[in-house]
Design a protein around this nucleic acid. Structure first.
Lengths: 345, 345
DNA sequence: CTGAAAGCGCTTACAG
DNA sequence: CTGAAAGCGCTTACAG
């Protein structure tokens, strides 16, 4: 008993294949009674269109590629949930890790071509995955691309994107630290020129400059957006006596790494050192001490990103490119405190 | 300029489509010289087989479905890396979250049927994803399934699986705690009857019983393998005066949640309470205090699981079912310490 | 609103 | 070792 195909349905319903196909794909163009009859047969024999045949015939798969820096980063969990929720069962999501791609761009393109992906969501806008290079190659049409989470640099401004105002968020967080009396603030950032942190660095520098701190950009350390990155930076920063009194970290993992170094060195957080993270991942609230941080609406980022992609897929003629700015929120917990007066030691 | 197809290659090489196809799929059956000529043409015009057509024609996709409880759990990061490394570019990995599947089994089957997945890796052997139900339904052939990370219950013993000896690992960890003088030890586990924790619970109970502790299974709390689960259990456990002196947690997230509750309640870890985790995720080492835990070779779990699947895919006739037991390792950091003598308070 | 026919790009017996 | 031919299950102009 083989899997039923469209021809069995057609035979049983007494119509042609074309009509069955229309019932599936453009029911509005089918007579009500015919439609009902065909649907009944479909139901009765449990017919399901062969996706492989559909994809082949239509010349495109049902695969959406989502590029993340690192699947393990807990921030992606909610975002991916949001994406899957919207894309639903109509599309399959496959993940690619930018950090794992030593071969970089070539393999990325390979994958796009080989898998005949229908759309791309970039949750990391590294140069390797320059969205301008998506499509237009190898006889492929240009693919819809949406950028999520990351700000979009000016030269990519024509691409739809969904993210918070990173500049403003970093400005707010830094201002909060400044308001607590801190002046010796260091910003532990990600890779130099990484798009996700550039805006944050500018926000930091701007707040610092407004508060009269000299050469704020000298207070920015570049590294890796990871626990290891936080550890490395903290070792450089906290080993010396004239260490900063507050650390603003480009993400929570960095902050967690930095706090562990502080603990090792016997520096108390927040008494001797305030630490502020970014993202409000699930590990922030239970850190010891609980981490103050900047929250992003991650699930919403995923949902909105996916909705924009869906729109682009369903309305290829509609070239409207939206930039959606979602709200951020300062979450103050226990890892930050007012600057202690000098005579502390 | 359309994407080149097999017929252009055939024409340019002066052979038939069949021969080009053979060059691609069974080069050993092609004359060396013909092969070389065809390959040259392929190279020259940049031909790449249309995967969509291949999949359709062969009646199967190149998709491997990996089921995890929760993508965000950091333990899966390395495992997925391992899987991807082995499955490489030949297959696409799509992820399904068991926790997200309220509809459960039905949707799972739907996905399998609809996407025509070629193989399944189960990183969570919940009843919803009972591997015996994979395949055999809806006119589909039985699919190769490999279980990773989780122990396999006796009734599924005919399925290949890759995991540590969870019973032994829990026994070892509990014994370590007992050797430190602890007797009032609680085990915070996952869902009741969750296969991943059953073996661990038995290992715990066995070690406790050997040490003469009465009713060890009464010391097992069931909840959720998450930070929230750890928080909930810790609230039940640590609120009362006759609280345990040591907590053994079924994973690191639980331990992190429990430690945060201890911190809130002013209970010092490890002075007043030893806490032991499981998995050695990236958040264990930088916790405050750094978390003692049981490490699993996660990347290897992924690689071995994927290799078994690959074997099953390439040798469907070979029914050999392997159970691979990988080594575990106790990692002792700062969250565990010898029991303090009574007169502490 | 419906049907007959062609065709998407490949693979696979089959015959030679 | 190679080629001619059929066919996988669907969709899509086209004609009526």
């Amino acid at each position: 008993m083989a899997k039923p195909t469209i021809v069995q349905v057609a035979r049983l319903a007494g119509v042609s294949n074309s009509t069955v196909s229309r019932c599936l794909n453009q029911p509005e163009n089918v007579d009500k009674k015919t439609l009902a009859r065909v649907r009944k047969v479909i139901e009765d024999i449990g017919y399901r269109p062969n996706l492989l045949a559909q994809n082949f015939r239509r010349g495109q798969s049902d695969i959406v590629l989502v590029v993340v820096h690192n699947v393990g980063a807990s921030i992606f969990s909610n975002i991916l949930d949001g994406i899957r929720g919207v894309l639903g069962s109509r599309f399959s999501v496959i993940l690619m890790e930018s950090r794992a791609e030593a071969q970089g761009h070539a393999r990325f393109i390979d994958l796009l071509v080989a898998k005949q992906v229908v759309g791309v969501i970039l949750l990391c806008a590294s140069p390797t995955f320059d969205p301008r290079l998506i499509g237009g190659f190898d006889h492929q049409p240009r693919l819809p691309v949406v950028i999520g989470l990351e700000p979009v640099s000016a030269d990519l401004a024509d691409l739809p994107s969904v993210h918070i105002d990173n500049h403003r968020a970093a400005f707010d967080a830094t201002t909060y630290l400044l308001d607590m009396g801190h002046r010796e603030i260091a910003f532990i950032s990600g890779e130099k020129d990484s798009p996700i942190t550039l805006d944050r660095e500018r926000g930091f520098a701007e707040a610092m400059a407004q508060a009269g701190c000299a050469a704020p950009s000298a207070r920015i350390l570049h590294g890796d957006l990871s626990i290891q990155g936080g550890i490395a930076a903290a070792h450089r920063l906290l080993g010396r006596p004239e260490r900063p009194t507050a650390l603003f970290c480009a993400n929570d993992d960095i902050a967690l790494g930095a706090m562990s170094v502080a603990a090792q060195l016997g520096i108390s957080v927040p008494e001797d050192l305030s630490v502020m993270g970014f993202d409000d991942t699930i590990y922030a609230a239970t850190a010891n001490p609980p981490l103050s941080t900047v929250a992003q609406p991650t699930r919403e980022v995923g949902e909105r990103t996916a909705k924009q992609l869906l729109h682009a897929l369903d309305h290829p003629e509609d070239a409207e490119q939206l930039t959606e700015i979602l709200p951020h929120r300062l979450i103050i917990r226990k890892s930050t405190a007012p600057l202690r007066q000098k005579g502390k030691a």
